[in-house]
Design a binder for these strands. Structure first.
Lengths: 160, 160
DNA sequence: GTTTCTGCAAAGGTTTTGCAACAAA
DNA sequence: TTTGTTGCAAAACCTTTGCAGAAAC
């Protein structure tokens, strides 16, 4: 069995600890487990899925602690809540490495593709300024059909 | 007291009826009430707020019927579910008149501003095609601070 | 008349909270 | 020690569903 924080970027635990300490809170084993679970994957997950991942590391992890730590992680900016157009909230651990990405969801197979486009970021900033604001955060979700799926009935690109 | 469907665009009721009939369902007084409530405003609302608006027209309206009709309205495309970054789902009745708008949320006062930008739509289509998809639907949310608020402490633009 | 719809109340799913025991600083 | 944290169970929320009577076609 792997050590809780084995595979994850140590900078993440550092940033989490800094955030925690700044709030006058404590770094605990339980919180480390949940951070390790959240950043031990690069896919998006629901609260329930994160609970499952955390319990694989520490089976006694409770839902309550999971939710409490999840709030800390989103508040710290390490984890971002995203809207995939499904019924549940999803969380994305990839903003630490790719702070400006967006999401495209394949309506054919459900696969979520992350993309970043600097022209889009610039344009979005322009539009925001033209409205008299300065942009703090944006979220873009594109729902689309796979061209390959349309012609061949298969969805290779999306599954790549 | 106003007639249920008094002030709303009759084309909306027509489109709703067409959708309903195509599904082999029935147009009812109760559904008309909820459609009237939804399109009697141009602001965004939660399910609960729509229930309140519907009960102002027909006090006996039940939550169950509200939710059932809300599903029909989103399925028909007349109403769109949007993510305002708050804890609840919101619904937007303005896509009938402005099919391509997006939302900017003022972090200073919470006001939601609708905007449409054709360059953004074109660029988003490009990006999608470059990824091998054809775009079906997009949602863009920008969270921003009012420049005026930053300097003066007031947020006129956002409240305009 | 047949099928769908409505309102009610109950149930389902997700997230939050009060509390007593426990752990970090 | 002091204060924050955990797990449990209960509660709070929002949404869906089963059912019997009512309404649409």
């Amino acid at each position: 069995m792997k050590t809780p924080a084995s595979d994850i970027d140590p900078a993440i635990l550092d940033r989490f600890e800094a955030f925690i300490k700044e709030k006058g809170l404590r770094r605990t084993g339980q919180r480390d487990v949940i951070v390790a679970a959240a950043f031990g994957t690069d896919s998006h997950f629901t609260a329930e899925e994160l609970w499952d991942m955390a319990r694989k590391i520490a089976p006694s992890t409770s839902r309550a602690t999971l939710y409490r730590t999840l709030s800390l992680l989103t508040e710290s900016g390490l984890l971002q809540e995203i809207d995939l157009g499904r019924d549940q909230k999803y969380y994305d651990p990839n903003f630490v490495d790719h702070p400006n990405h967006n999401h495209l969801i394949c309506l054919d197979c459900g696969k979520v593709i992350e993309f970043a486009d600097e022209h889009m970021a610039v344009l979005e900033d322009c539009v925001t300024r033209r409205l008299g604001f300065s942009s703090v955060h944006k979220e873009i979700r594109i729902e689309a059909r796979c061209q390959e799926f349309q012609s061949t009935g298969k969805c290779k690109k999306a599954k790549a």
